[in-house]
Amino acid sequence: MAYKFDFGAIVPHWELLLDGVVLTTELTVIGAVVGVSLGTLGAWARASRAPVISQIVGIYVELIRNTPFLVQLFFIFFGLPALGVKLSEFQAAVLAMIVNLGAYSTEIIRAGILAIPKGQIEAAQSLAMNRVQIFRYVIIRPALKKIWPALSSQIVIVMLGSSVCSQIAAEELTFAANYIQAVNFRAFEVYFVATALYLAMSVLLRWVLKIFGNFLFERRSHV
């Protein structure tokens, strides 16, 4: 084989890769926190069966789940300026991730809410709790517990999907890798390292989500 591997060729660009990892992490953290919050509200609206709101959320969910993430991203970055909404690469990327995760997590969390036995909601009603109190104290924690593994997977998928944001020049990890291989032509080495970094980040993210889930759903008395 004529090709000589030279991983040393990447070393001069390590800062760029690190910046990419940092930006990918930022996109993921903001996207996950805001996206899951949005999904929680969406799931509540869907499950509450308030006719208008529920339908609007339903349209949003179907629109996002049935179109490619790349097109959503392009629409936000290249399309919205026509309406006077001009966003930076980072803002567009993070908004696209929030909107995308918001839709998927709406459906995931809704499934968790629907799995709460009706009797528990009736018990809460009979204790004179209002809808907000019932959602907050009776529904959401057991519901999230039920769907936490599915939600965690979706967050990891969105993190990996952030690589697409390189297409609008958001300087995340894939963008950094593209840039480096364009400079030193070491495509194998660069993408090998990028792959390893994504893998490590995914494993780490799963682990963090698991620990966070354990913390969130751990049995501890609040009294």
Binding site: P117, G119, Q120, A123, A124, Q133, Y137, P142
Partner: peptide
């Protein structure tokens, strides 16, 4: 209720305390 319908994520004490506190 027939099926008790206790809130599974709270202790017995918390089940009883919840509504007086929040309502």
């Amino acid at each position: 209720f027939q099926q008790f319908n206790l809130f599974p994520h709270y202790t017995a004490l918390e089940n009883v305390m919840l509504s007086p506190q929040v309502v």
